[in-house]
Amino acid sequence: MSVAKNIGRRVVKRLGASVPALLGVVVFTFLLMRVLPGDPATFFASGPNAGQEEIDELRRQMGLDRPMYEQLARYLYDVATGHLGRSMTTGQPVLADLAQRLPASLELSFFALIIALALAIPLGIAAALKPNSLIDHAVRFVCTLGVCVPTFVSGLLLIYVFYYLLGLAPDPTGRIDIFAAQPPEITGFLLIDFLMVGDLAGWRAAFGQLILPAFTMALFVLAPLARMTRASLLAVLGSDFIRTARSVGMTGWRVVIVYALRNAMLPVLTIIGIVFSTMLGANVLVEKVFSWPGIGSYALDALLASDYAPVQGFVLLIAAIFVMVNLAIDVLYGIADPRVTVE
């Protein structure tokens, strides 16, 4: 099909276009880590009392005595070959650390996104179909509150209510009870791994750990999603072509489903990309609140310990995820909006 071919061409084009963005991030992290904090060698030295000789030796080892462009070239080469350095706190290569922790963050983010979408889109649609009704006001109220409560506060309050008061949620530390058996590492997504080995009890335990942090995150992004759904559906419902569809006698539901919803979802799709990247950022906060062993808390620990290699690896990884997410959104957009592929 020509549509598939068109989309394929778009993916290639988009990937090509994202190279400068990625390169920009790499250069940015390079500048951030090498130039701004003064002399990195002092950071990497054994301590604040390290002698000048030790620092000079380090500088030579790290190549800091070379001209800037040479350092940049070397850095680019390292990044391209996957050498992100070694974490001082864990003693492991940064790449390995990140790979080990990434599934935890992704599982949390995806699960939260699914919850948010499952709540926000129906709410937005309901509000738009009956503007100024009770449900519309209720949705607006929830949305207004949702953006006002920071994730770290709502997370803690959820812990207080569901763990301390009601005792419904398990101890909010980590992805799984320390005493429970880990599933075999297949995908790294616990919910999927437990299902694959058929361990339902384990699945339930992992789910219990996941639901509060995921809900916290979902609450935060609920508002932009529901608002956008409502606004764009309202705009579409008020547009001329909906009037046309009604003027030829199409029934109300058919008009909404065939004509309005698909058009209204286009801006929502765009906002999903932005929402997901907000969630990548908010991850750091939520992971800290729930002691979630993801990349966010890893980077944060490193940051607080002035261990810069993991931080820079984290920023690069986030940039890469960000590019992938945008690519996916773009492909979906291309499927949903034929005008894009026509050109």
């Binding site: 992290t29 990309g273 907000t278 920023v315």
Partner: peptide, 19 residues
């Protein structure tokens, strides 16, 4: 591009780098 990038992460990196 900047707007779609996780800005909170950017802010973290900036504070880390600037002090």
């Amino acid at each position: 591009v900047l707007m779609a990038f996780p800005l909170f992460v950017l802010a973290m990196a900036l504070v880390a780098a600037l002090g």
